[in-house]
Amino acid sequence: MRNNRSGYLFILLSLAGVSVFLMLPYLDILLKSFSTGNEGVSIGLDNFKQILQNEAFRIATKNTVRFIAVCIPLLLILSLAISIYIYENPKLGSMVKTSFLIPMAIPVTSVVLMWRFLFDDNGILNGILCSLGFNTVSWMNGSAAFWILVGSYIWKNLGYNIILWLAALATIDPQVQSAAKLDGASGFQRLFRITLPSVKNGTFIVVVLAILNSFKVFREAYLVAGDYPHDSIYLTQHLFNNWFRELELNKLAAGAVLDSVILIILILVLQKCWKKGGTKL
């Protein structure tokens, strides 16, 4: 009993922070999403109907979903493959690991500056294309923008995910790998029967973190292309930003609630998947 009480004491501080800055504002948003103006006159689901018919909301949602659907599997598979390669070749050492982490340490503004050098209409890439006799490409004002954003996300998050996977791989007892080798398992058999099943439990947290991090690419997109970028990289965050500036607080609230519900459902589904996999294991 006493242990329980001191346990609560330990979480008190962060609980207070989370309540003041996250939970209470969320409740406020929840109320606003069902009302009009700042007065709080209840109008039921009107806000939701309105934003679901909104063209900008549709484009933004579509882009965001597409971005996550492309990036997350790509990032997970790429980082897992690289981390398994590092795990199987320990002689590569920390040099390789560190080099993958460098993008994380570069501030967003520097990245954006680099983008401008590279992808501007008169930038380095177009300069190269020009000197080779090709037509220049309007990188940031075409569908290429989406893939540039994808590349930037992968580039920035790859190292972090590799470290997470390596942490999961490090929990495998090296003697178990030795035992599998002596039992006659080939490299592939060890990968699919020993290594991958062992990191399965770590996958959930890696996926959730990757999804949450995917929302951060907005910073790059915003700093490069401003409030109204090309249609292919107009994300929900752009929309919310613009609504905020135009004081469309009730639309904003409804959109936020909708997004949070989708995210919560997504996480619950993921959790359920892993729990089921866990018992089957």
Binding site: D173, Q175, V176, A179, R193, S198
Partner: peptide
């Protein structure tokens, strides 16, 4: 081979 820490496949 038989190991000190058994090295069984946990899954």
């Amino acid at each position: 081979m038989i190991f000190q820490n058994y090295a069984l496949y946990e899954n």
